[in-house]
Every structure is written in structure tokens, then in C-alpha cells.
């Protein structure tokens, strides 16, 4: 099983993945999660014991297709409503720290 061989050497890199997910963790959190998730990953890996070569993946539990809406404009939210939920605003926009491109 090629998959098993590969996964046995791979270990979750909590610090890297947390950054990818934009979660700034403390060192202690990283240590704790690393230990816990190593166990979880070792456990969930066992699905690769199965022979899945000729199995189609299921991404939807129901066999539905082609659900469309017609191209018609419907009223949305008012700018007041939208801004009232915003943590910070500027000129009816969502204010964020300066974006550097």
C-alpha cells in the first residue's frame, strides 16, 4: 500500500497548518494540539488500509444535479443593516488595517 508508506512518514505540522488557517497559536497550544492531533491522524489514516482503487468518491449524499436560479435581481440588505454588523467601518465600507500589495 503506497499510501500507507507515505503517510507513516508524514506527521501533521501543527505550526505550519495553523498559519495556513490563520490561527495564531501560543507555543503551548501548538504543543498540546500536536500531541492530540498526532493520535487523531494516526487513527484516521487507517482508511487507507482499504482497497479504494475502483471506488468512486461521494461528495454529495444526494444525487441531485443542475439546480439553478434564474438570472433575476432580488433585493438584498440595506447598507445600514450591513454596516450595523460591521466591527469597524469607513465611508460605508468595511474598515480593515492597511492592505499592502
Amino acid at each position: 500500500m503506497a499510501d500507507l508508506k507515505m503517510t507513516s512518514v508524514d506527521k501533521i505540522d501543527v505550526a505550519y497548518v495553523a498559519h495556513l488557517a490563520r490561527l495564531f497559536l501560543t507555543d503551548e497550544e501548538i504543543r498540546t494540539f500536536q500531541g492530540q492531533l498526532d493520535h487523531v491522524v494516526a487513527y484516521v489514516k487507517k482508511i487507507n488500509e482499504l482497497d479504494l482503487k475502483n471506488v468512486e468518491p461521494t461528495s454529495h449524499a444526494v444525487m441531485v444535479q443542475n439546480v439553478f436560479r434564474e438570472d433575476v435581481v432580488k433585493p438584498g440588505l440595506s447598507v445600514e443593516q450591513v454596516m450595523s454588523n460591521a466591527p469597524a467601518t469607513i465611508s460605508d465600507q468595511f474598515q480593515v488595517p492597511k492592505i499592502v500589495e
Binding site: 467601518t89 469607513i90 465611508s91 460605508d92 465600507q93 468595511f94 474598515q95 480593515v96 488595517p97 492597511k98 492592505i99
Partner: peptide, 11 residues
Amino acid sequence: NMHFQNTSGVD
């Protein structure tokens, strides 16, 4: 994104 003096805004 719109850029203001010290901050940015999103529309």
C-alpha cells in the same frame, strides 16, 4: 479594496 490614509476599506 479601497485605500485610505492609514487604513483600507472593502466594498
